[in-house]
Simulated assay, not measured.
Amino acid sequence: MTTTETLSAPGLTAGLWTIDVAHSEVSFSVRHMMIATVRGSFGAVSGTIDVAPELTASSIEVEVDTASVYTRNPKRDEHIRSATFLDVEKYPTATFRSTRLEPAGPSTAVLTGELTMHGTTREVRFDLRFNGVRVDPWGSTKAGFSAETVIDRHDFGMVTDMPLDSGELFVGREVTLTIELEATAQ
């Protein structure tokens, strides 16, 4: 990244933006038996984006209700909610709070912050894309963002592993987190 790169977000005005729960999603994917990919999402996502006049000074906070995990398989969902993975009774939420926003291109940035999940906080870096601003039919101004990162579930205390005969893991350690946000100007 060079120091001459700037972040451009036409139409994104300074101020508080609230995450539109009905049009936002936090999803994940992980290798299963190292031959397939399992995908899931969280249905309950909330938070705010504080857009600063200088875009790189902006911040975001996202909260996920971990019990809202959905993988299209109720038995697997219960296993993910259990103490083996998310332990939703002990850790009912996962949060992300940004600490830095660095331009990577005209509508892209690296969003760094603290991800807290399963009682553990780690710094993570998301590749962020600004998707634009539109006014909906009811007059609300909406902005869209996409972000993605890869984490190691062991870094967050989810270390239960089931080795296969091949020596590989039943559930991979690398988890791709994808965030699709639509936010409403306040």
Rank of each mutant, 00 (worst) to 15 (best):
V110M: 12
T18G: 03
S58C: 08
T18W: 01
T160A: 13
T112E: 03
A52C: 10
T116P: 06
S140D: 12
E174F: 00
T112A: 14
A183H: 00
L16I: 15
A83Q: 10
R100L: 00
T160Y: 12
S27G: 15
F126A: 04
D20K: 02
R39M: 12
L12K: 00
H79W: 09
D165G: 14
A94L: 03
D127Q: 08
V30G: 07
P137A: 15
V171S: 04
P106A: 14
V88C: 07
E174D: 13
R129D: 08
R129F: 00
L177Y: 03
W138H: 13
E168R: 07
E63I: 07
S82G: 04
V150L: 12
T93Q: 05
S29D: 15
L128R: 06
G11K: 12
T178K: 14
S68W: 00
P92N: 12
M34E: 10
L101G: 00
T112M: 03
S27N: 07
R122E: 13
R31F: 02
E61K: 10
T95E: 09
V135A: 06
V26Q: 00
N73A: 08
M162T: 14
D65N: 10
T48V: 14
T6G: 02
T56S: 11
S58M: 00
F42A: 00
V38H: 04
L101W: 00
V69A: 06
S24I: 10
E61H: 13
Y70I: 06
V26A: 07
G15V: 09
L101F: 11
S140R: 14
F130Y: 14
G105A: 02
V110R: 13
T66N: 06
T95S: 11
T56M: 04
P74W: 13
E61A: 15
T121A: 15
D155M: 08
I19D: 02
I151P: 01
T48I: 06
H118T: 02
S46G: 12
H154P: 01
I80M: 11
Q186N: 11
T95Q: 12
R153Y: 06
I151D: 07
L7K: 06
K90C: 01
S24Q: 08
R125A: 14
E102P: 05
K75I: 01
R76F: 11
D77I: 07
A57G: 08
A104H: 12
L86P: 03
I19V: 15
G139E: 01
A104P: 01
L115P: 05
T176F: 04
I80S: 00
L128W: 05
F156W: 11
G113N: 11
P92L: 03
A147D: 05
V175C: 00
R72F: 14
V45C: 01
T160H: 14
M162C: 04
V110L: 14
W17M: 05
V64P: 06
E54G: 01
L101S: 03
G172W: 07
D87K: 02
T99R: 14
G157K: 08
S59W: 05
E5D: 10
W138Y: 11
V124P: 02
A14F: 03
S46W: 01
T120I: 15
E54S: 08
R39E: 11
D20G: 02
A185V: 07
F170Y: 11
D20V: 07
G113Q: 09
A147L: 10
F170C: 08
T108M: 08
R81E: 09
D20S: 10
T160N: 12
G132T: 10
D20M: 04
A9E: 12
T66P: 06
R125H: 12
F170G: 03
S166A: 13
R97D: 06
